[in-house]
């Protein structure tokens, strides 16, 4: 099987497995799968993972769930109605002890205000998450952080430059 065809088809296999592919796309993918062992294996892999996950959850949920009850046993569960602010406070204190957070937040605000007063605002942090890079020749990816830009640098396969790039 032509691997190019497989690579073209692959992203649609998940949707095919879920019966979420329609029309011409579905016909193309189904036609390919009918003659491609590799893609049939991928579909089978997807099926196995799904089945194992369902089985694990099914068995896991056969446990005693009586702890989930109403009224809730949680001592901190509030009764409605809550105001918007009460709800916010509840959400925050649900997961963290508020006092260290409030103290930290106050310190942070003081620090930010102080820095803001004496210095110009820092450059915004550039964030780029590279998922995939394919290039004809050698390629260097220099991730950006702390205001640096992410760089993808392409080198000629036959003519390497004499400069030696260094990560920023």
């Amino acid at each position: 099987m032509n691997p190019r065809a497989c690579e073209t088809i692959e992203p649609a296999l998940s949707a095919l497995a879920d019966r979420e592919l329609f029309g011409a796309e579905r016909e193309t993918v189904v036609g390919h799968v009918a003659v491609c062992e590799t893609c049939r294996r991928t579909l089978e892999d997807y099926r196995l993972v799904g089945a194992a996950l369902r089985e694990g959850i099914q068995i896991g949920s056969e446990r005693d769930l009586s702890a989930i009850t109403w009224p809730p046993r949680l001592a901190h569960a509030p009764s409605p109605p809550l105001t918007r602010w009460q709800r916010l406070i509840y959400d925050v204190t649900r997961w963290v002890d508020p006092w260290p957070v409030l103290a930290g937040a106050a310190a942070l605000i003081a620090l930010v205000v102080g820095v803001w007063l004496v210095q110009p605002a820092p450059s915004p942090v550039n964030m780029v998450e590279i998922e995939r890079v394919d290039a004809e020749g050698p390629v260097m990816v220099i991730p950006g952080s702390g205001g640096k830009m992410t760089i993808i640098w392409l080198f000629d396969a036959d003519d390497q430059p004499d400069v030696t790039p260094t990560p920023i």
Partner: peptide
């Protein structure tokens, strides 16, 4: 020459 996919944060530059 290049074929890449990436996620770009708002205002970021590559």
């Amino acid at each position: 020459l290049l074929d890449t996919t990436f996620r770009l944060a708002n205002g970021a530059t590559i």
